[in-house]
């Protein structure tokens, strides 16, 4: 299909000329995704760790809820966030609708369950391995929690990567709460949706290639980190 070569050329041209609009959109994409990822990790990693190592009545139910929430459709999240942030909604007074913050909130809701559920799984395995030793040593719970996160850091990196992947590639939620406003809330995915709707399929695909390139770059970086960790063999 000739559209591939056309799109590759367009993608290359956009990048080579470091097109201003593209750079702005790219920067916002990364900013929004990284901010939501950072906030999700601040909430999700400790929560995942607590679910992994503590037993309490609602624990299994909560794990089930977070597992289910990994599959939340982005449009539903977008709609819920829209309804809450709308001027006529309960948080309308914050004036956040159609801002990057609204997009961060929506993406946080999307990726926090991923961070919680996957980190819980990773840390549960480690806990199974460490718990008798830590119990025997009388390690305080807080120290144990930290040790789990430190010793599982390379597995957790993969978890975080999964969250980033979801955030940066998601369009359904951010287009509703961000509004795809030029120079304000337009990100890579909403730009792709826009170009597709304008019938500029080659340009849309070119943007898709660029998004893919970013994903590949981030993944290779993590692969490399893990490989060097293996060389030092913190396995």
């Amino acid at each position: 299909m000739p559209i591939y070569s056309e799109s590759f050329a367009a993608a290359f041209h956009l990048l080579a000329s470091s097109d201003n609009d593209l750079m702005e959109i790219l920067a916002l994409s990364l900013n929004v995704s990284l901010a939501s990822l950072a906030l999700s990790c601040l909430i999700g990693l400790p929560l995942g760790a607590i679910l992994a190592i503590r037993q309490f009545p609602m624990r299994d139910f909560l794990v089930g809820v977070f597992n289910a929430m990994m599959g939340l459709p982005p449009v539903v999240v977008g709609l819920l966030v829209y309804l809450h942030l709308s001027r006529s909604g309960p948080f309308g007074w914050l004036g956040l609708l159609y801002t990057p913050e609204a997009m961060v909130i929506a993406q946080m809701i999307l990726i926090t369950p991923i961070i919680v559920a996957l980190s819980c799984q990773v840390l549960e395995d480690l806990h199974e391995d460490y718990k008798d030793f830590f119990d025997s040593l009388v390690v305080p719970r807080r120290t144990a929690l930290l040790a789990y996160i430190i010793d599982a850091r390379y597995s957790l990196l993969t978890v975080i990567l999964a969250g980033f992947g979801r955030a940066v590639s998601e369009v359904g939620a951010v287009i509703i709460v961000g509004g795809n406003i030029d120079h304000l809330t337009r990100v890579m995915t909403t730009a792709i949706a826009l170009e597709t709707s304008k019938g500029e399929l080659a340009l849309a695909l070119a943007l898709g290639f660029i998004l893919l390139a970013i994903s590949l770059a981030v993944n290779f970086l993590v692969q490399w980190l893990k490989a060097s960790a293996k060389r030092r063999a913190y396995v």
Binding site: Y130, F133, S136, L137, V138, T143, A152, Y234, V235
Partner: peptide, 29 residues
């Protein structure tokens, strides 16, 4: 009393760290 005791398991739990770091972790406790 438990802190004055140590137990060596049949299959030891090895922290995902260096040999020295394993020892340092316990020492710090």
């Amino acid at each position: 009393i438990r802190k004055q005791q140590s137990l060596v398991f049949q299959t030891p739990t090895i922290l995902r760290r260096t040999v020295l770091a394993n020892l340092l972790f316990v020492a710090r406790q």
